[in-house]
């Protein structure tokens, strides 16, 4: 899966979780820039991404997520 593929698949996940079809993701996007992205929805986002990509994040990985770019590259590493 290319980086573009990951973004193409991850964007609808954000649209669904935050119920906002206008969200456009970039590697620099952080939680502050998306309305409703708090600690609660963060877990929901993680689980939605796990389901979409058929992967599972390790406990430690969840602690260090900084931005969408980091999130996407983590997904890319896990999807074969």
């Amino acid at each position: 899966m290319t980086e573009a593929d990951v973004y193409a698949a991850l964007t609808p996940v954000f649209h669904d979780v935050f119920d906002d079809d206008s969200i456009v993701l970039s590697p620099e996007t952080t939680a502050d820039q998306i309305e409703g992205w708090d600690s609660q929805t963060h877990v929901i986002l993680i689980v939605a991404a796990e389901q979409r990509f058929g992967i599972k994040f390790r406990t430690a990985e969840l602690e260090s997520l900084k931005n969408v770019g980091h999130f996407a590259s983590l997904i890319q590493q896990k999807v074969h």
């Binding site: 877990v43 929901i44 689980v47 599972k56 390790r58």
Partner: peptide, 15 residues
Amino acid sequence: DPTRWHQAKQLVGPE
């Protein structure tokens, strides 16, 4: 799920 428990004290995950 232990991950969900350690992360957010969830017994029943959102899924």
